[in-house]
Amino acid sequence: MSPPRPRAYRLPGLGLNATLVVVFLGLFVLLPISALAAKSVALGPAHFWEIITDARALATYRVTLLAAFGATVFNALAGLLLAWVLVRYRWTGRGLLDAIIDLPFALPTAVSGLALTTLFATKGWLGAPLAELGIKVAFAPAGILVAMAFTSLPFVVRAVQPVLQTLEPELEEAALTLGTRPFTIFRRVIFPAILPALATGATLAFARSIGEFGAVVFIAGNIPYRTEITALLAYIRLEEYDYAGSAAVATVMLVAAFAIMLLVNRLENWGRRLAAA
């Protein structure tokens, strides 16, 4: 018998790593989610449905989704603009702005909420002039939008920035020599190239907005049916010792988050395909 051939080198530790990953995922992700789902299932389908389609719950979905949608649209535009300014122009203070972009991530959300409430309250720096115009932000649906937009802005900037950075200037120059005007170059050459990244960033921002709690509860006023978000309803049910009711509402948010993450995944694949060429 010939001696066994040596095997090609493989990175050792696959077994150990796989075990760690499974245990970690199980303990920190799957277990809590299962507990939540189990709690909801225990309600029985009819009761569960009743809770999640209750008029007050439906109102929170509407408030949350509308505000999150508004915040996302705002962030898609503002984030694209910020990324553009950060990548395309060289100016003093660029580095500082680049650092500040991440502030909403680093700041405790309660601090963000408090700061925004102070700013937009009827006596606040921005709230006062807006009140003159008849626009109420704090303790109104608009306030929810502002809080969501503030806390999720970095997603769009950080998704678009690297793609914009690696976009070859030759693409624009090629368009230029073909007689293309600047706005057309943006519309037909640059924008399609960064669209997957923009969509990914916007979707992440949307997911974050739907889940935002800390910043929103300070500024929203939390009036049932008007400015109450879904996450807050789950919290209120918990405070009322209605664990099942809380779990049911939370399950709705869980499913929404999961669906959004699937979408993000597909958007990222799209971007990769486009970048790979």
């Binding site: 070859e168 030759e170 693409l171 120059e173 090629a174 230029l176 020599t177 073909l178 007689g179 293309t180 005007r181 037909r188 050459v189 399609p192 190239a193 486009l274 970048a275 060429a277």
Partner: peptide, 21 residues
């Protein structure tokens, strides 16, 4: 005269084709 109005065809080393088209 800017590039777009010179009537030149320009070809780049790394092709610079539009990937989404």
């Amino acid at each position: 005269t800017p590039a777009g109005r010179r009537g030149v065809g320009f070809v780049f080393q790394h092709y610079a084709l539009f990937r989404h088209m």
